[in-house]
Design a protein around this nucleic acid. Structure first.
Lengths: 199, 199
DNA sequence: CATCATAGATAGTGGCGCTATCAGATAGCG
DNA sequence: CGCTATCTGATAGCGCCACTATCTATGATG
């Protein structure tokens, strides 16, 4: 972790500046190190952009903001934004997403970035000629619910606001990477059992 | 989809060139359009790089290669590669991953990119002070297994090699995006039920 | 026949995550 | 006390990536 990189993060507002003990000497404490580790995790493992990390960190640090708003901000920043020009397919996909949300009884805004991302993905599937993949959607949603419950259970261990918010951020971002890797492993296993050597 | 962009894809080896009917006229068919849609899906929704897409497409088109090898190539290209300098934490994380693989009975190479990605993520969790998140690992693995089974079931519908391989590619890449969005929705729902308005 | 579009090639653009360089100031050693 | 190594903040530049603009030669088109 080079010094110029750290100063870059300070400039970008990801990291508070060190306390100046003299015009050319600054001291950094454990909180800085902790924050740096968080930045690297979000950047390397979570794949967030510096801009997204800045917003997430601003939300974490803004202690005046209600927790559920912070969580909303964090969730929104972590899904890549699509600005889709309105087409025929995306409208149908949005309908599909709305129906799923209703069927699940999820209390979520059907225009949230996550819902939109789902619609975009479903539309792309359709475009590519694999619209039938949505047969698996219920299984996916079941799995997502289970995982989300586990996430919440973990988060419930943390009571202090600061900890609570950070645990959600970390869990959400890292959880994606972890699940993705696990899915890949499970797929490899399943696939080997079916196609192993043959075909 | 601009013409220069298409020509760029041709240069990059993502798309076969159109058939020249004269020195300044080329004709593109339905297969080209289909391939373009696949490229956009992998790029926009899957977040793959052009280089990764090239390798994936090469693997798809290399009809001599055994199917399970193609699937391996595809899976490996879709995981961002980490080249971690050996440290203390990563070794422990790798051990954790190995234990999980053994416990699950997964027939996978413990040094596959997916296993490595999982280890990196677990190490990052530890570094950030949220090592306890691994309590949820079993739930995650269960969910991953279910999803992988659903994936395989979908893939089983396709018998022709060309279709088979492509369905795996699409399913793997888009599945990540879909699950991620679903998880976000499920989390929002769960989180709202707990923190909704309060706190 | 004049204009316009297209193929192919080469060079350039904009965004992003850093990184190199510079001037000014001081820590710290002899 | 002097001198050099090192730090600070500021500015400019780099390398990668996904395109995009420009150019020339050639042929389509009204």
């Amino acid at each position: 972790m080079s010094v110029p990189t750290i100063k870059f993060y300070v400039r970008e507002g990801l990291l508070p500046a060190g306390e100046l003990t003299s015009p050319n000497q600054a001291s950094y404490g454990e909180t800085h190190v902790q924050r740096l580790r968080l930045i690297r995790a979000l950047l390397d493992v979570g794949g967030l952009s510096v801009a997204a990390i800045r917003e997430v960190i601003l939300a974490i640090d803004d202690s005046g903001r209600p927790v559920h708003k912070v969580l909303g901000t964090v969730a929104d920043r972590m899904v890549p934004r699509y600005d889709r020009e309105p087409g025929a397919g995306i409208a149908e996909a949005r309908g599909q997403v709305g129906a799923l949300i209703a069927a699940r009884g999820w209390r979520v805004h059907p225009e949230s970035p996550a819902a939109e991302a789902l619609a975009v993905a479903l539309e792309a599937l359709e475009e590519v000629g694999h619209g039938a993949f949505t047969e698996a959607l219920d299984t996916y949603a079941d799995a997502a619910e289970r995982v989300a419950r586990a996430d919440l259970e973990y988060v419930a261990h943390h009571v202090a606001r600061e900890e609570l918010v950070e645990s959600v951020v970390v869990g959400t971002v890292m959880g994606d990477a972890i699940f993705s890797a696990l899915r890949r492993l499970a797929q490899t296993d399943a696939s080997d059992r079916v196609f192993g050597g043959a075909r």
